[in-house]
């Protein structure tokens, strides 16, 4: 393996191939200008977007598409804020009509304050969406049985949380994520919980195919600089994974030869 590996290192989800392994959200920014600048700095090729009612009293208000071009960046519509399978399915049918694409992020959430993935609702919605021709990237609990079942149902990416949405707590479950990953053959993405660059690097070092985050950039003091940091962290973590880390050992192992010392 040589340095050239990074240049050819792509990943593919539902037949679409991407170079960037960082998926970013488009929410919680100060304004659409900052959203666009942060996405550009992150190098992301996929962004998550929400589906909401149009403000009918201000129909000419600028829209996300005016700032983030869906022809250049893949929009991944989400179901954030959906607490039932029915709401999630309705939302994504609307998204498909608004954008014309089938690739979606499904999340069915339990109540605040945890917004933890509601797995029965997630299974129900995933089945309905897959039957209806959607390609479902699914936000889920870090549950090895659920991950395999979602994959068997036909989900195109398994996306367990690292910590609750927007918590910025970092990966609370690296060992479990590693074990789930071993049984998943579709893309495996850590979604939610990333707080800073090192968290994203750790997710990639574990062997994830990509990382999905929003608040870690949008709620940083300087979102554009954090977006840049995340881009490098994901690349660094990926390279470290490919390089293969040294074994851990309990005790020292000197790097300098012990022979030839002056006496």
């Amino acid at each position: 393996m040589d340095g050239a590996v990074a240049g050819d290192d792509t990943w593919t989800v539902a037949g679409r191939t991407f170079r960037s392994r960082l998926i970013v959200g488009t929410g919680r920014y100060k304004d659409l200008e900052e959203t666009a600048a942060a996405i550009a700095a992150s190098g992301a090729e996929i962004v998550t977007v929400a589906v909401r009612r149009v403000n009918l009293s201000d129909p000419k208000a600028p829209m996300l598409q005016d700032y983030v071009d869906p022809k250049k960046i893949t929009y991944l519509p989400n179901t954030a804020g959906c607490f039932t399978a029915r709401e999630a399915v309705r939302t994504l049918r609307l998204a498909r009509e608004a954008g014309g694409w089938n690739l979606v992020k499904l999340e069915v959430l339990g109540p605040a304050p945890l917004l933890y993935p509601d797995m029965p609702g997630t299974f129900e919605a995933a089945a309905e969406l897959i039957k209806d021709g959607f390609e479902v990237m699914v936000y889920c609990a870090d549950d090895p049985l659920a991950a395999v079942r979602l994959q068997e149902m036909g989900c195109v990416a398994i996306m367990p949380l690292g910590a609750p949405i927007g918590s910025g707590l970092g990966l609370q479950n690296p060992a479990m994520l590693t074990m789930i990953k071993e049984n998943v053959t579709v893309p495996f993405v850590v979604d939610a919980g990333i707080g800073t660059a090192s968290d994203a690097a750790i997710a990639m070092e574990l062997g994830c195919d990509a990382v999905l985050l929003n608040s870690a950039i949008a709620h940083a003091k300087d979102p554009v600089t954090m977006a840049k940091a995340m881009k490098h962290a994901v690349q660094a973590g990926r390279l470290a994974h490919l390089a293969g880390r040294m074994p851990r050992r309990m005790g020292a192992d000197p790097s300098s030869p012990l022979s030839g010392l002056i006496r």
């Binding site: 959200g25 488009t26 998550t48 996300l64 598409q65 609307l94």
Partner: peptide, 9 residues
């Protein structure tokens, strides 16, 4: 219901 895409995570 008339909807569009907005920023979201």
């Amino acid at each position: 219901e008339i909807v569009h895409f907005i920023g979201g995570g």
